[in-house]
Design a protein around this nucleic acid. Structure first.
Lengths: 337, 337
DNA sequence: GCTAGCACTCGACTGTAGCGAGTGCCAGTT
DNA sequence: AACTGGCACTCGCTACAGTCGAGTGCTAGC
């Protein structure tokens, strides 16, 4: 059965009220607070239909209605209007991010800002290595058989690895190697480097280069080392109505697993927010939460993801607006650095 | 009044039982579970004295006794025997830390291990910059008026900063500068670098070097950039008997403040554990918790701190043993890298 | 198609009673 | 002098019954 406009209005009103009060909303309250132009009884009939269709449900027989995941989904897709950021928020974002001195700083500031503005848990992925390109490579001799490989990417990330050399190698050779590496690799996307590295190794046919190639290929490209920053876990205590051990612990545990967090950003695009509501989340432990995420990067490219995690009963329009705004600012900052 | 041996035995028994059961312990239980050789009534008299002296207290008139912060302090100082690590734990530590590939990896593994073994919140400070020395400096030109300063320390930390040059500087000059910097600074403790940098700036009297000197002095030395890794916040949900908003939130908030966490390691020494119980903590929000911390580093030097935070009712001997063991292994690992 | 009215449900809250772990004190024993 | 057994007392916890009220579904009427 198709839902007519009024039923959709009722659903919207239920979601908005429930998000605001965190209490099941009844028919009387609803007509009082929203000018729906009909009586509570009519609303009750509409509610019955909405419940039958699975958009809302009753916690107990004698309680008001609460949106289901499906109800939130409909709300997000069709009912919510975009909520523009207040000038105050906009200023807060600018002021907060402007003083960042390096990439670490940008990420840390962004994640704290996001947590503060949304009053939820914020997650920011560092610019992904696989999506970055090489700006500079440096080989630092530590001993005659060991050197440190330092790679700097265009997004400002710095990665280092220890390389064990198969035989003592004079400093001059290392310097030549550095020059060769930079000539070949600077400017290349990380995903495109493997053949280049291989070609270089074949061309030079030098033990040191071979060891280096192994490290480059294995640790930097295949096993993409991703990093994550997290903030606002204290906001989880705002969900009242959940017990400590039962509900909070699994969420906190999930938040400590980088693998899980990274999956949140798997399908993000720049500019538009991705919303996963309750059951739509891949991980069972996060099925009581919703995740709003988006991609960021210079222009409209995506070098990493950021987002917010909170109860399914969250202010979706506001959260979406904030997440997108912060992502845009972070992207802009990256182009400068 | 001096406490005789039996009263101290009673206190020890109370602490051990309370830590094990998390429930106030009464006189009857106590004589049943420990062979004290006296009757409950006698124990009650002893308890009355211990309470008068402030070592234990009654949550309610008709409840058993619970140790006070003062009671735990006495227990830690005089009553607890060192608990040696089980071979299983020892093996777990070795196996877990052995595969670490770089500093980040060491720190992350250590903090997770610590959280897992103690079932509490673990905190590990990255090797402090101010206590490290310079291994290598690199200047990477980004544009003609901007370059990236990368510093690698002997503990494996890599720090980078963007330097704005006052005027376009040719690449050759940058290379000379790099050579000079490394000649002067490599091997020096970071705290000792300011006069060296200043001398170099005076000697060269070059605009680029001056800009560089400012960045080096200000960001790397004066404002010591410290980093922290955290794990096991989910273990906070094990404290039952605390309410979400009232008790958990302030702790989670404190854990997100790097400044607060760093203070935990202010006075650590290598080899011995520092225990701060309840009220002894500087920050009001952590007055319901205890912190066991120690320093780590190659040999008996201290380059950073690590520790564990949990309820005042924690297993002090076990926690102290674990914290010290992990610190020793981390220190050893750093000497290898 | 909407509304007013009504009987019904059921969670939240309140007050009462009984239970039991634990205590303090005192008189008696070693 | 130190310890013990006994006893009256306290008080939090649980169970239970009763009341209240928000909210519902249904039906008859507009």
């Amino acid at each position: 059965m198709a839902l007519d406009d009024r039923k959709l209005d009722v659903l919207r009103a239920i979601v908005e009220d429930y998000v605001a009060t965190q209490e099941p909303v009844g028919s009387k309250m609803l007509v009082e607070r929203h000018s729906l132009g009909v009586s509570p009884a009519t609303v009750r009939n509409d509610m019955a239909v909405l419940e039958e269709e699975g958009y809302i449900r009753q916690p107990h027989t004698s309680a008001g209605r609460v949106p289901t995941d499906r109800g939130y989904r409909l709300f997000v897709d069709r009912l919510s209007k975009v909520k523009p950021l207040s000038p105050a928020e906009r200023r807060a974002i600018e002021r907060f991010l402007i003083g960042a001195v390096d990439l670490d700083d940008v990420v840390h500031r962004a994640v704290r800002l996001l947590a503060q503005l949304t009053r939820q848990v914020a997650v920011v992925q560092y610019p992904s290595l696989s999506r970055s390109s090489v700006r500079h490579l440096e080989l630092v001799p530590v001993s005659t058989t060991r050197l440190l490989l330092v790679m700097i990417t265009d997004t400002g990330r710095v990665e280092q690895r220890v390389v064990e050399l198969p035989e003592p190698t004079p400093v001059e050779d290392i310097e030549t190697l550095t020059r060769h590496l930079n000539e070949k690799l600077v400017g290349a996307k990380l995903v495109d480097t493997p053949p280049l590295v291989q070609a270089l190794a074949d061309q030079l046919a030098q033990p040191a280069m071979n060891a280096l190639a192994v490290v480059l290929l294995e640790t930097l490209v295949e096993r993409h080392e991703e990093r994550i920053a997290l903030a606002g876990t204290a906001n989880l205590t705002r969900y009242n109505g959940l017990d400590l051990a039962g509900s909070l612990r699994p969420i906190l545990e999930a938040l400590e697993e980088e693998v899980i967090l990274l999956k949140l950003f798997d399908e993000v695009k720049a500019g538009s927010a991705l919303v996963r509501i309750g059951d739509e989340n891949e991980y069972a432990d996060l099925r009581t939460t919703s995740v709003v995420s988006t991609g960021y990067g210079p222009g409209s490219t995506v070098v990493g993801g950021l987002g917010v995690l909170g109860p399914t009963r969250m202010d979706y329009p506001g959260t979406i607006a904030t997440v997108r705004a912060v992502a845009r600012y972070v992207g802009d900052l990256l182009t400068q650095h």
